[in-house]
Design a binder for these strands. Structure first.
Lengths: 256, 256
DNA sequence: AACATTTGTTACCCCTAAAGTAACAATAGA
DNA sequence: TCTATTGTTACTTTAGGGGTAACAAATGTT
């Protein structure tokens, strides 16, 4: 019977700060509306010897009410109230933490010119940051439509305020996207698809140069995705030169 | 040097889901802007042998970026981004959890007529719920202005739509509150201030009867606060009778 | 009144995550 | 070549949470 209960729900409650048993007991009590410790124990597989202490803790936290007696009866406080309280407390904690962190770092100068990013979220975050900063020109090379799709809205905006050059390896893959694409030379396509470092295939999925002074490259190596940000104008300039070559012999295909 | 750093900040970050060492490392890195593993270790007291693994985890989570080499350099991602991400993930989890809980309990009928509440938050929550439900008459006895202050706004609203009777033990204590008070008889005052059960002093701080059918009493016993909610109309009726007596001989003092 | 059942409590063990420690390999600089 | 630093590995310790067994207190039954 309890086996039907979503174990995901238990895990969610754990993420919200309850222990596994607390979560089970609270969920059980929400199901039963009103119950004795034993009934909760039977429904939830929380050991009977543990259930009393756990219910006490939940009552202290305000997640349930009780009616003393033998047996004592319990009822759950409305989930809306409970989750609302947890949410409020967490948000307070988060804003306070942010304030404290900001006191430590008035601004974060991005001192060094080269950085690697490993998390998916971090990569997208940084791409967005770069897109926000573009003033005149943005050159993009891409071999996977995924990223362009993700940032379609931002790119559409940029299209109006600056030069936007998007180079792809195969026009076909990008047909569904509403941009003007240029295609690389065959030579470059072969090159980019066959980079092997230390026996592992390197897959350059995205490469952007913003205003000729900041670049980000996202590649896939051995199942792991990683991004490299470079802020050295010289390096970016060289990279830009190479990418300009890619387009030789000055040949432009439009896809629509 | 690091001793100046707010340990509260570390605890906050722990509440947001980091381990102690992760929190220390991230805070250290925010302070240093850009640093090697050793520098972070020296600033934060995180063992040097542990710092590498921890920084790896933080990078995976997207909270920092790195520049490989010997030594490898690290920099913190802007706290605004990091806290923002944590917050978003938490809120998603919270709303999902609430949905799942609501599926279990379409509505929570408050079946039983008597419940105890132990948490401060739970008590206030329930008082608010009762205040929301009052239609015609609300009788309040209070010996501590704290609660009336807390719910001043709600009570002011109720004053317009229903009969509101507030009885207090000493008019003086409540002088600053903008309500019309009635005072109890001396006899009742003595009685209420000297309730002893099992050797412990019982202190009735607040008592409310809503529409003669639901009551909540908040009392303090041995440093712990507790509330009892009763929904039996008969019991409430009896309680109301007693409280009516309290006002005998029909004598009403107005405080302004 | 004697017995059995249920309620509530206590004391223990186990496991795991995370913190701390010590010693070693790999690398870089002198 | 030698030394200092970087980075890694294996181990110990600790604390919190989970599980089990056994007992006292209360309740119910014959």
């Amino acid at each position: 019977m309890f086996s039907q209960i979503n174990p995901q729900l238990i895990r969610n409650l754990e993420k919200l700060g309850l222990t596994e048993n607390e979560a089970k007991a609270y969920v059980g009590l929400v199901c039963l509306r009103e119950a004795t410790a034993r009934e909760i124990h039977e429904l939830t597989t929380v050991p009977r010897a543990k259930i009393y202490e756990i219910l006490k803790v939940l009552a202290k936290k305000g997640y349930l009410e009780f009616r003393q007696g033998s047996p004592t009866y319990f009822r759950a406080v409305d989930p809306k109230q409970v989750i609302g309280k947890i949410k409020d407390e967490f948000l307070n904690c988060a804003t306070q933490t942010l304030d404290q962190l900001n006191e430590l770092s008035y601004e974060l100068p991005k001192t060094s010119p080269v950085w690697c990013i490993q998390s998916e979220w971090g990569i997208k975050n940084r791409i967005r940051e770069i897109l926000d900063g573009v003033r005149e020109e943005l050159i993009i090379f891409s071999s996977s439509p995924e990223f362009l799709q993700e940032f379609e809205a931002e790119l559409k905006k940029l299209e109006k305020t600056c030069r936007l050059i998007i180079i792809v390896d195969e026009l076909g893959k990008f047909r569904s996207l509403p941009f003007e694409f240029r295609e690389t030379t065959e030579e470059f396509k072969d090159f980019i698809n066959n980079i092997v470092i230390d026996g592992a295939q390197y897959n350059e999925e995205l490469f952007m140069i913003a205003d000729g002074k900041e670049s980000i490259g996202v590649h896939n190596a051995g199942n792991k995705r990683e991004a490299v940000v470079i802020r050295l104008p010289i390096v970016c300039y060289l990279q830009k030169m190479i990418y300009d070559r890619v387009l030789e012999p000055g040949f432009i295909k439009k896809d629509r």
